[in-house]
Amino acid sequence: MKLITLNLPEPYLEGLEKLVQEELYPNRSEAIRHAVRDLIRKEKAFTPL
């Protein structure tokens, strides 16, 4: 896995924190990975690992 830097608006970060606090995801990184994966699948650009 590669490390990237990501700048997000404050409301996005607050939303991510809420998802983690509600234990829907173990951490922000996992929530972001999930969101990116879903976007790529939706746009039909997903290549399975």
Rank of each mutant, 00 (worst) to 15 (best):
Y25A: 06
L3F: 07
T5L: 05
A31D: 03
P11K: 01
R33T: 02
L13W: 06
L24E: 13
K42D: 09
L13K: 12
A45Y: 06
L49V: 10
I40F: 07
I4Y: 14
N7Y: 10
P9V: 07
S29E: 13
Q21G: 06
M1R: 05
L8I: 11
R41H: 06
V20R: 00
R37N: 10
V36A: 11
A35F: 10
L3Q: 11
I40Y: 05
E14D: 11
L16K: 02
I40T: 09
E22T: 04
Y25V: 08
E23A: 10
E22Q: 14
T47M: 06
L49D: 09
I40N: 04
R37C: 07
T5G: 11
D38C: 09
L3D: 06
S29G: 15
L13A: 10
I32R: 01
I40Q: 04
L13C: 12
Q21S: 14
V20W: 00
L19K: 00
M1P: 04
D38A: 14
L16Q: 02
R41F: 05
S29F: 01
I40K: 03
D38R: 12
L16D: 01
E30M: 06
I32A: 03
K2Q: 08
E30W: 01
L24H: 11
I40P: 02
A35M: 13
Q21P: 00
R37K: 14
A45G: 10
P9K: 11
N7Q: 11
P9W: 04
L16N: 03
K18P: 00
R41I: 15
A45Q: 13
L24W: 07
V36W: 02
P48E: 05
E23Q: 14
R37W: 01
N27M: 07
Y12V: 15
L39G: 08
L16H: 02
I4T: 12
P9T: 09
V36Q: 01
K18E: 11
L6M: 11
G15C: 03
E30A: 12
R41C: 06
N7A: 13
S29A: 15
P11G: 03
R37Q: 12
K42I: 02
D38Q: 15
L3H: 09
L19R: 00
R41D: 04
K44S: 04
P26G: 09
E10Y: 06
K42V: 03
L13H: 11
K18M: 09
E10M: 10
A35Y: 05
F46D: 04
I32S: 02
I32H: 00
Q21R: 13
N27L: 06
L24C: 07
L3E: 10
H34L: 05
Y25P: 03
L6I: 15
E17S: 10
F46A: 09
A31T: 02
P26S: 13
A35T: 11
N7T: 14
M1I: 05
P26D: 10
